[in-house]
Design a protein around this nucleic acid. Structure first.
Length: 855
RNA sequence: GCUCCCGUAGCCCAAUUGGCAGAGGCGGGCGACUUAAAAUCGCCGAAGUCUGAGUUCGAAUCUCAGCGGGAGCACCA
């Protein structure tokens, strides 16, 4: 076989041979690189279509194929619509699996990682993913992670990267810390082991400074991001508004501030609760009696022994200890006993609360358990009016009477609803909303409180005690001083693994690389490098900018290029990243905006979450024995059939059960379409107008409909329309005007052009067989002929009382009166109406008449 | 426990957004071609839209209640 053999056009009489077609075009595209995006003089409008880049763990699987198929359909569509489309790919190639594989095999993580990348890249090419192969990046390349370090230094300069000691999530299995986002149900997201707490000094990114903007800017994504993802982000950020209230503590100089969303119920506070694992609790206990100290110590030990799972169990009984200390309610001077209880969290709000058992279920549960007083201050039976009412004695008396029926203690249910304030001095008679406003005014006037908001979102912990990541570019001197590595000395390159023990042991393996760790400042001061590496989510928080020029060794990205291409017009990826990656990327984008590098504040204008590929109702896994290997599917059916099957299976957001779909059916359809392309006998310059009108109508309806369908991601419907059209062409050839008819050529050309989104190899081959040398990918969709979209006649349905009784063939421009007259006269209508009285006739010309009767 | 999404032929899914329930595919059946099979081609069933109420001239589509499935949140003051 000579090298020319594989580039011989397939014989028209030959059977559809997908393997041969695929091989031939893959080789050609390798030469012509049709999807490079590097011509600066290109004046076409731009689109940036981005797939979430993969982690290189083994070869691509069915899920990858699905995601990349959808992203590719969109990229090819916009290209076809005349856009200059940037559609890059890279690898998120730092991270634990590579390190674990290296430990297991006693090799370097680089070997495993880069071998997997090569394998995945080959599979992507086989899938005909139309990536710009000149822009490939790998986050584990020093050429990439040097800019992670640059980014870190920018955040450090802005005070957005800082080090602090605190209780962190610790995975005992992976021997590393985890961000809050990586703890799911108290377990390590990666290895599913129970997470414990450990006190460590670690680096954080101050994402909480951006909490308001991260929340508020979600509004501009409404409609172009899945609402599910927006909701998850909102929940995660978790903004609560209310007030901070200062309580004087007996025997303590400083007041204690608590956060509450219900400052209106301040008069109903009957005790205070502090988190047992807070410094405040320890201090308050230490200043109390020996008995209290002992009880507290016992309680604290008990609390710390329980794991996250137990702690989060909402059905569990309240526990706590009385500290024998008292706080003074700033609005009424009441003495409130202070308790330590683990239903109050140390790291939310101020780690202390005012307890209002009448109106908060958790406080009520606690009060009932420990027999603490309960005072109702909101009459939840009273009607609520918006305006500030004028209060009369009678109203207050009446309110007190109504309130007597309110019995949270008896019912065990807190009164959380709105109502009218009672037992609350100056707030009496007000609605909840008005009371909140008023009490904040009062507190602010007295200097004992203020409006406040709190977030569930915590700062982003980025230190990892592992080898295979970006070194943190900070030097530490003996006095504990921090010295950022100067920009011109970047990158801080990972040392070789030679002689390093990568085995997890709680401290970074880099600490053992003595020659690497020890260095000096320009003035000769000995310093040590920070031995930790960055969370890999740092890598992916800005990679979409690096694609603008992944080979630029002078800057992370060119702001001018960012202005041209970014933000990403369409992002495609799994919902698994709904919180973590997307939140971090949004944060870093805002930081870069504030630093003046970007002119936009949201990185991803539109987001498509594809579903999963499952098998027989459940996620594929080796242990379940239902694993379907992508490479097997590609071998068996060819890339085009696999891609088409993904597109046709249903809406892209839905899961695809591979047991429910038919790649052989897809292949059959492709063969049908391909065969027709060889039967056409007319030439490319045939006069379209001479073609069969019925087939032309169908073709042009599809031309009119397809763009809207693709843009709404209704790929399955487009494929169905293509099948219909192919069926119609078949019929036209076999039992109609025949293969020489102009409409046949026109229709199959449209099929080829649209099919190029889903089945690029087959479509390219069809296009060639139809006599074209150009790439079908750039052929573009013709404009539909408006005259072919207007029907000569339409079927009007005639209903009587909503039931179809007759049909009429009428002109599409028929008047309502005329249609009504025709409809009333139809045999079906006359029969159905009989001698009943016609009470109403609804006419929706030209499609429908409904005659409503009575009698 | 709270919130959101979804229930349409045996199966996967459409339905111009309130106007004839069916486009497409899978599977199944029948037939043509074949010595036969595969492939190919042609033809054909099948549901009244999870259940119940309501709004409407008209409901798969809107409202309420329930059943079933999925997702998110859940001691966050």
């Amino acid at each position: 076989m000579t090298e020319h053999d594989s580039d011989t056009p397939t014989d028209e009489a030959a059977e559809y041979d997908i393997a041969r077609i695929q091989e031939r075009w893959m080789a050609r595209w390798e030469q012509t690189r049709p999807f490079a995006t590097d011509d600066p003089s290109d004046t076409r409008p731009r689109k940036y279509v981005l797939d979430m880049f993969p982690y290189p763990s083994g070869d691509l699987h069915m899920g990858h194929a699905e995601a990349y198929t959808f992203g590719d359909i969109i990229a090819r569509y916009w290209r076809q619509q005349g856009f200059n489309v940037l559609h890059p790919i890279g690898w998120d190639s730092f991270g634990l699996p590579a390190e674990n594989a290296a430990i297991k095999r006693g090799t370097d993580p680089r070997e495993w990682t880069y071998a997997n990348i090569d394998q995945q890249l080959a599979s992507m090419k086989r899938l005909a993913a139309s990536f710009d192969w000149d822009r490939v990046l790998r986050t584990s390349d020093p050429e990439y992670y040097t800019w992670n370090q640059w980014l870190f230094l920018k955040l450090y300069e802005k005070g957005l990267a800082y080090r602090k000691a605190s209780w962190v999530n610790w995975c005992p299995h992976d021997q590393t810390v985890l961000a809050n986002e990586q703890v799911v149900d108290g377990r390590c997201e990666r290895c599913d082991n129970l997470v414990t707490k450990k006190k460590l000094t670690q680096w954080y990114f101050k994402i909480t400074d951006y909490a308001d903007r991260l929340l508020d800017d979600l509004n501009q994504l409404e409609g172009s991001w899945p609402s599910k993802v927006i909701t998850m982000q909102r929940n995660w950020i978790g903004r609560s508004t209310g007030a901070d209230v200062d309580f004087v503590i007996e025997g303590r100089d400083e007041p204690v501030t608590v956060f509450t969303t219900r400052p209106d119920t301040l008069f109903g506070a009957t005790f205070m609760v502090v988190a047992p694992d807070s410094e405040l609790a320890a201090e308050l206990a230490a200043g109390s009696t020996p008995e209290v100290q002992q009880a507290f110590a016992g309680y604290l030990a008990e609390v710390q022994r329980s794991n996250e799972i137990e702690r989060q169990d909402t059905t569990r009984e309240k526990t706590g200890v009385f500290l024998d200390r008292f706080a003074i309610n700033p609005v009424n001077g009441e003495r409130l006993p202070i308790w330590a209880a683990d239903y109050v969290l140390a790291d939310y709000g101020h780690g202390a609360i005012m307890a209002v058992p009448a109106h908060d279920q958790r406080d009520l549960d606690f009060a009932l358990k420990f027999d603490l007083p309960v005072r109702v201050v909101v009459d939840t039976n009273a009607p609520v009016t918006g305006a500030l009412p004028v209060i009369t004695e009678e109203m207050l008396d009446a309110g007190a009477a109504e309130a007597a029926e309110l019995d949270p203690v008896g019912t065990g249910t807190a009164l959380s609803g709105d109502g009218r304030m009672i037992n609350s001095g100056p707030l009496d008679g007000l609605s909840k909303a008005n009371a909140i406003t008023r009490v904040i005014e009062l507190l602010e006037g007295a200097g004992t409180g203020r409006a406040a908001k709190t977030f569930r979102l915590r700062d982003w912990l980025i230190s990892r005690q592992r080898y295979w990541g970006t070194p943190i570019p900070i030097l530490h001197d003996a006095e504990g001083g921090e010295h950022p590595v100067p920009e011109d000395q970047l990158p801080v390159v990972l040392p070789p693994t030679d002689g390093l023990d990568l085995q997890p042991k709680g401290t970074s393996p880099l600490g053992a690389a003595v020659d690497w760790v020890s260095t000096t400042l320009p003035d000769g001061t000995p310093v040590t490098r920070d031995p930790d590496t960055m969370d890999t989510f740092v890598d992916s928080s800005w990679y979409f900018l690096r694609f603008l020029d992944p080979n630029d060794d002078t800057q992370a990205f060119d702001p001018a290029e960012a202005e041209k291409w970014a933000p990403v017009d369409q992002y495609v990826g799994g919902v698994t990243h709904a919180i973590l990656h997307l939140l971090y990327a949004r944060f870093i984008t805002k930081v870069l905006f504030d630093l003046g590098y970007l002119t936009f504040t949201e990185p991803f204008t539109a987001l498509l979450n594809q579903g999963m590929v499952i098998m027989n109702g459940s996620a594929m896994s080796k242990s379940r024995g239902n694993l379907v290997r992508l490479s097997d599917q590609l071998d068996e059916h060819g890339s085009d059939a696999v891609r088409l099957t993904m597109a046709f299976a249903g809406p892209p957001e839905d899961d695809i059960d591979w047991a429910d779909v038919s790649p052989t059916g897809s292949a059959k359809f492709l063969a049908r379409a391909w065969r027709i392309s060889g039967e056409v006998t007319s030439s490319p310059d045939v006069e379209w107008k001479t073609g069969d009108v019925a087939l032309r109508r169908q073709t042009h309806h599809l031309l009119a409909e397809a763009p809207g369908l693709v843009e709404a991601f209704k790929f399955n419907v487009v494929v169905a329309r293509l099948m219909e059209l192919v069926n119609a062409i078949r019929k036209t050839i076999d039992t109609g005007p025949g293969a020489g008819d102009a409409a046949v050529r026109e229709a199959i050309e449209v099929v080829a052009v649209l099919l190029s989104l889903f089945a690029p190899y087959t479509a390219a081959d069809m296009w060639e067989r139809l006599g074209y040398e150009s790439e079908v990918a750039f052929a573009g969709l013709r404009k539909p002929d408006a005259t072919l979209l207007v029907e000569d006649s339409v079927t009007a349905i005639v209903q009587v009382d909503g039931k179809v009784r007759d049909k009429l063939e009428v002109s599409p421009t028929i008047s309502a009166d005329e249609l009504e007259a025709l409809a009333r006269a139809t045999a079906g209508a006359v029969r159905a109406v009989g001698d009943r009285e016609i009470v109403n006739v609804i006419v929706r010309a030209p499609r429908l008449v409904n005659i409503a009767t009575r009698g």
